[in-house]
Amino acid sequence: MDASSATTDNLDPLQVAETWKSGGRDVAIATVMETWGSAPRPTGSQLVIDSAGNFHGSVSGGCVEGAVITEAVDVIETGEPRMLEFGVADETAWRVGLSCGGRIKVFVERLG
């Protein structure tokens, strides 16, 4: 495989997750599972997070990453996966929202 391939790119979230976990770090993976309206990142986009809050990748244009990272650190501790939902209209459940007007569902799981 040549080194320029996208999958061997050191910015690829799933490659980063493998490297981190293999190196002994606790890791969570967040995945965009559903989008409505003008969501910034497509379904399947991923963010990897370690227990110290380091992260790679994206699930939005930077709008909700902070909240996802906070949740991910909890998920790493408990091991229980969570489905998070973010949207402009959804003011009660989450303080952060998407400025673009879209809504997204993000699944956060611990890498076992």
Binding site: L14, A17, E18, K21, S22, E109
Partner: peptide, 24 residues
Amino acid sequence: MDLVLLKELNAERAARRAAILITD
């Protein structure tokens, strides 16, 4: 997902083979 599965998925991707990861 566990590390074994992630390694398998990354190996498929590095080899330019299509794969689907199903998550419950």
